[in-house]
Structure formats: structure tokens, C-alpha cells
């Protein structure tokens, strides 16, 4: 067993899990065309969940803050993007692809800007007074999530909001029997680009080095002469902006969103962070891809088990690796 573990470790170790799940899905599903469609959907969904969860993982790891209000940024991101897209409706349907792209870009930028500003406000006003007190963090951030939901209800109403898509992201690519939605390819590409950018920042810059060190031992980073509390605010803002971006992408994916979106996504986001291991971007990506793939395969094979599948996945991984797949701190 140890030898098999060593060989697997040499070729990628836990990073091979999504491939293993995809191969298992191929065997169980049987029909290659359905498998390709489900796999692409799973990867796209995984990347959007990665966007929502990556910030929470860093905040959890670096600041030891249990932020149950994180999904409020997802909700607001979704609704702000939906409003921006509706406002730019003329650009969405235009034949000029540049206007299409500009409309989508502006909607995403609006969500990101909101995430940055709301993240600063949330950290300064709500989180800062409850550092080092997990019980109060849970209570106050849960409260903030409920308040956020009510604000969304007040502004956008209780009926589901339709999210228009730009023309260039409508439709699907048909390859033989396989149909791949263009939006899913876009979501996957954007998620991958954000992952690469985050990876480069964390692994190739001094700020990234500080964040990785801070996730492991905040006190020691301060003893080396760095004000980590200032870094906290920046990381919190970044995490909130990524969550809002994830929410904006999710809105376009679902095309119909309700104020309960945040609370629904909160469970998935926490599952991903726990599966991946706290404070690790690589772990969050791995967890998000697994959740996306398993959710889609199980939804096809045994629809009644779809909701339970993520919980079962989390329990199985925690029994195997109690700290998650790739925790930042060993």
C-alpha cells in the first residue's frame, strides 16, 4: 500500500482525484456524449465555486475568522451583475461582439468593485471587533448574512430575477453528439485565469509569501517586522471581490436568481474549503472541481442523491484526510 501511495504521490498524489472521479464517472455513465457534457458542466461549476470559495479559504487560514457572511458577497455579486446586465441590455443583444464583451466585462467589474468596498466595510465594522472569538464571529457573520438577504429582498424583491446573457455567450458548440454550452467554457476559462493569477501572486511575490507565511504563523510574521493586520484587510477585500465575481458568474449560469442564493451557496462553499484544506488555493481548486464533478455525475445517475453527494464526499475525504486534501499548514 505504501508503495502504491509513493507511486501515486510521484505522479501527482491527491491532484489526481478529479481525474479518478472523471474516469469513474465515465465507467458508470457509459454514454461518452453525456459524460463529456456532464464533465464540462462539472468543471465549469467547479471553477465558479472555486471563485466563491478561494477568498473564504484564505480568510479562514490567514485570519482564523469563521465568516458565515461570506456568501452575502456571492449574493450581492450575482444581483449587481444581473442589474448591470439588464441596464446594458442594448449592448447584450448587439451584433457587435465588442459591445457584448464590454457589457459582460462591466457587469463583472461592477460586482468586483462592490466586493472590494463591501469587504473593506465588513472587515472594519463587523469582523475586527470579534477577532479571536469564534462564537461571536459565527453569530455576527450569520446575522450579517441574514441582514444582507433582507437588503437584497428590499432592493430586488422576492420573485426570482432573470439574468440576461450577452449574445456571444449564448448557444453551444456541437461536436458530433456532444453539446458544450459556451457559457460553461467561459466560466471555466475565467476561473482558470483567476487561479493562475492567484497562484502567481501567492508563489512569486513578496506579498504572496507574507500571506502564505501568515496562514501558518501570524505571530512569527509580526516578529519578523510585518504588520499583518494591514494585510488582513487587503486579503479580506480580495476574498470578498472574488466571491462577488463568483456570484456574478453563477448568476449568468443559472439565468434566474433569488435572494436565497447566498444561503444555498454557503454550504457548498464551506464544503469545498473543508475538503481542500484551510488556507490553500490549490486545495480549494481541488475541492471545487471534485464537488462540481461529483454533483453533476450523481445528479445524472441518481438525481435523488444529488444533494447528499457533496456531504458524503466531504465525510469520505475527512475520514481519509482530517485536515483536508491540501491544507496550507501541515
Amino acid at each position: 500500500m505504501t508503495r502504491i501511495g509513493d507511486i501515486l504521490g510521484r505522479y501527482g498524489g491527491v491532484n489526481l482525484l478529479p481525474l479518478f472521479v472523471a474516469a469513474l464517472g465515465f465507467v458508470l455513465i457509459g454514454a461518452p456524449a453525456s459524460w463529456v457534457t456532464l464533465t464540462v458542466a462539472g468543471l465549469a461549476m467547479g471553477m465558479m465555486i472555486f471563485l466563491m470559495a478561494s477568498g473564504l479559504s484564505l480568510v479562514f487560514g490567514l485570519m482564523d475568522v469563521l465568516n458565515f457572511g461570506h456568501s452575502a458577497f456571492v449574493s450581492f455579486g450575482a444581483f449587481i451583475a444581473a442589474s448591470a446586465l439588464a441596464f446594458l441590455g442594448a449592448w447584450l443583444g448587439a451584433e457587435n461582439i465588442a459591445l457584448n464583451i464590454a457589457a459582460m466585462g462591466l457587469a463583472l467589474v461592477a460586482a468586483i468593485l462592490f466586493g472590494l468596498a463591501a469587504g473593506w466595510f465588513f472587515e472594519t465594522v463587523i469582523i475586527r471587533p470579534v477577532y479571536k472569538d469564534h462564537l461571536r464571529q459565527i453569530l455576527i457573520t450569520m446575522g450579517a448574512l441574514i441582514v444582507a438577504e433582507q437588503i437584497i429582498l428590499m432592493i430586488w424583491g422576492g420573485t426570482p430575477t432573470a439574468v440576461p446573457r450577452p449574445a456571444f455567450l449564448e448557444g453551444a458548440w456541437i461536436l458530433g453528439d456532444v453539446s458544450i454550452e459556451i457559457y460553461r467554457i467561459f466560466a471555466f476559462g475565467l476561473g482558470l485565469a483567476v487561479y493562475v493569477a492567484l497562484y502567481l501572486v501567492l508563489n512569486r511575490t513578496r506579498i504572496g509569501l507574507l500571506i502564505r507565511a501568515g496562514v501558518e504563523n501570524r505571530e512569527m510574521v509580526e516578529a519578523l517586522g510585518f504588520r499583518i493586520d494591514r494585510l488582513f484587510v487587503a486579503v479580506f477585500m480580495l476574498g470578498s471581490a472574488l466571491a462577488a465575481l463568483g456570484g456574478a458568474m453563477w448568476a449568468g449560469y443559472q439565468t434566474l436568481i433569488s435572494p436565497a442564493l447566498g444561503a444555498e451557496m454557503m454550504i457548498v462553499v464551506f464544503i469545498v474549503v473543508i475538503i481542500g484544506g484551510l488556507g490553500s488555493i490549490e486545495g480549494t481548486l481541488l475541492g471545487a472541481l471534485l464537488v462540481g464533478l461529483v454533483g453533476n455525475y450523481v445528479g445524472f445517475l441518481a438525481p435523488k442523491m444529488a444533494l447528499a453527494s457533496n456531504m458524503i464526499l466531504m465525510m469520505a475525504i475527512l475520514l481519509w484526510r482530517p485536515s483536508g486534501l491540501r491544507p496550507a499548514v501541515r
Binding site: V215, E216, N217, E219, E222, G225, R227, I228, V329, R330
Partner: peptide
């Protein structure tokens, strides 16, 4: 004074648990 400011005055600290960043 904040720990970081004290460190910047030229004081280094090696704690009992060494404070090594294992992931780095």
C-alpha cells in the same frame, strides 16, 4: 509598541517552537 515595530528596531526573536514556516 506593536511587535512588528519592535522587530524593525533591530530585535529578532527565535521562539521555543522555532516559528518556522513549514510550507515555505
Amino acid at each position: 509598541m506593536h511587535t512588528a515595530e519592535i522587530a524593525r528596531l533591530g530585535i529578532a526573536y527565535v521562539p521555543e517552537n522555532m516559528g518556522i514556516f513549514g510550507g515555505l
